[in-house]
Design a protein around this nucleic acid. Sequence first.
DNA 1: CACCAGGCAAGCC
DNA 2: GGCTTGCATGGT
Length: 288
Amino acid sequence: MRAEEKQGAVVLYDVCDFDLTQTFTCGQCFRWIPENEGYIGIASGRALYAEQHGDKIILYDTTMREYETFWRGYFHLDENYDAVKRILSEDAALAEAIAYGGGIRILRQDLWECMVSFIISANNNIPRIQKIIALLCRNFGEPIGYRGKTYYTFPSPECLCTLTRDELSVIRAGFRDRYILDAAQKAAAGDISLDTLSDMDTETARQQLTSVCGIGNKVADCILLFGLGRYEVFPIDVWMRRIMENLYFGKETAVDEIMSFARRQFGLLAGYAQQYLFYYAREKETKI
DNA sequence: CACCAGGCAAGCC
DNA sequence: GGCTTGCATGGT
């Protein structure tokens, strides 16, 4: 793959192992909206319109400099997904999952946005998670004019920590509102340090994360994988439990047992395996 | 009308 | 410690 700046955009040529639709709809992120031929999203306060035409991806309204310093990392383009997929495809079930979603890339998302997003995900469904996050940004984020429309940044801990549950109720998050406030207050006060979490080993970071009300082991795993780049982590939710029971166990199986199996089977690549399987499980469900 | 949704905390024993 | 229950809200 090569990148080239062209007429106010950065164009990626000979793209492989990268499909925009799969990457944006596989459930890891909640804020990329279909627009014309592509998607518009806000990541870390930057707006981007992206289109894919076969093995060419166009990132509009950006520069080579911004690509190198931000979007390249965001889309995890420094990782060799061909190698990841080759190793994981030794597992027959995973090979089939990869045949469905081989264009998924695990986005390196903003840690704070990731924390709040997965707090909201608890006992919830994906369309409503998206709605709640959109309302959160619309009500409390900063507006960004882009391509003739208004978009919103993700509100900071400092902003959210001043809100009351009543004020936050406009986002219709239900019982999760107090969890969001707890996370914002702990982040703003420095009880959890967003800056130093990335320097901690995974278990220490997990311990920090689960000290927030509303972050249990599963939500923490999602934050570790999507917000902190811990690709060995294997989040298990109801979808993952079902697909793992189907593909590997043939019967109801405890989460602990699935977890130790996944660690054994997928090792340091468990996070990638999780995303391929999660997408596969949801694709099969919705297409039958 | 039940039941479910990328779980979790709190309350039991 | 492990196990059970209630939880806001919106969609089938």
